[in-house]
Design a binder for these strands. Structure first.
Lengths: 191, 191
DNA sequence: GCAAGTTGTTGCTAAAATACAACAAATGAA
DNA sequence: TTCATTTGTTGTATTTTAGCAACAACTTGC
């Protein structure tokens, strides 16, 4: 009877066929409907017009990587929970994924997948806001206060994007070399 | 001149002496006051009656481990930012630390410590004075975010000074007629 | 070693922001 | 009603900010 029989719909984004088949089988056996995308572009096509309850996404994929896709979807307001997975990840990668908005990070090959999936689907994590508490002293002159605000804003984005100036410039709506000047003026050394 | 010379006080909780000495030197060179605790019990004693701006805590320590101490402190309402560190950690450990309330997770030996420390400490809200929680969305372009910040700043001052433009201009460090133009540009009608 | 791509700096120019000045309109006290 | 003060607008000059372009230095992959 179609989709109504399932406990949930799960999108698996991973280019490793053996891996995704195993996950699909495990989830299928307990009435989750798993859909596989082998890359970012396929995944983007799949979410059009389809609701998913969970996304399991690999970090390393040919073409656009999972971290970049995560960032793109979170910024677009995508609110389905996303779990990242990787066979090998640095702590900074894991921290970054969580700060971008992933709700968990799993090591491949996956262990104990089902309890994780059940736990997520029974209590959905609230979507995190991009709001920041700036706590700037308004007794400062406007120019000084504004500079502190800009400094916080840029430090936030530098942290979020691994000091990648091209990405931060785009996020901030600034020309790349303008950003360099602004960082210098504000006394921000990204090293 | 004692503690007033420092940019911040940082508690380092780690039983590896070589590691903590290096961190202390790095931080000391740029005017941070680093204090070392070699284990959880020593750290607990040190936070009594002392304010810290940041805690760097190892995960694996003899006696009570760092994750357990993190959990204990977060549950007790400890609000100083805590960064965990470890030479080797599973993704599940890193995810757990962040979900417990750590603000970052670093791999030992540490790299790029100073930008991380500066980033954290510039975002700390000062205890009192004219501080405002602005909660501005950093996903906006810089110009848009900046305009929202300026709007909050000016509305704050208008409220504080009974819509007296001459006084607000002086507080803001702007020329009086410049302030009129800015209010108009930001869509602020003081009536 | 070399080519391609990335990072970082600087010159120049246009656009935006700010200050200064002048003046009109509104307000309030006498 | 008159006058002084305050509020509000606008022209113009100056300063600051931002974008574009060019290029040097560095990094990475082959």
């Amino acid at each position: 009877m179609g989709e109504d029989n399932y406990l949930g719909r799960i999108l698996i984004i991973d280019d490793e066929k053996e891996n995704t088949e195993i996950i699909k089988d495990i989830l299928g056996d307990v009435n989750y409907h798993a859909v596989i995308a082998s890359g970012a572009s396929e995944a983007k096509a799949m979410i059009v017009g389809h609701e998913f309850d969970l996304v399991l996404m690999d970090v390393w994929m040919p073409g656009q990587d999972g971290m970049s896709l995560l960032d793109e979807w979170i910024n677009a307001g995508f609110d389905t929970p996303i779990v990242m997975m990787s066979g090998h990840a640095e702590p900074s990668d894991i921290v970054r994924a969580l700060k971008l908005g992933a709700i968990d990070f799993l090591k491949k090959p996956l262990h104990d997948l089902l309890p994780i999936v059940r736990n997520i689907l029974t209590r959905q994590a609230p979507a995190e806001s991009n709001q920041e508490v700036s706590g700037i002293d308004f007794s400062l002159k406007l120019k000084e206060a504004r500079n502190l605000f800009e400094k916080q804003y840029l430090l936030h984005h530098l942290a979020l994007h691994d000091n990648n100036i091209a990405v931060v410039a785009e996020k901030a709506g600034l020309e790349r070399t303008t950003l360099y000047r602004k960082l210098k003026d504000l006394g921000i050394d990204k090293r």
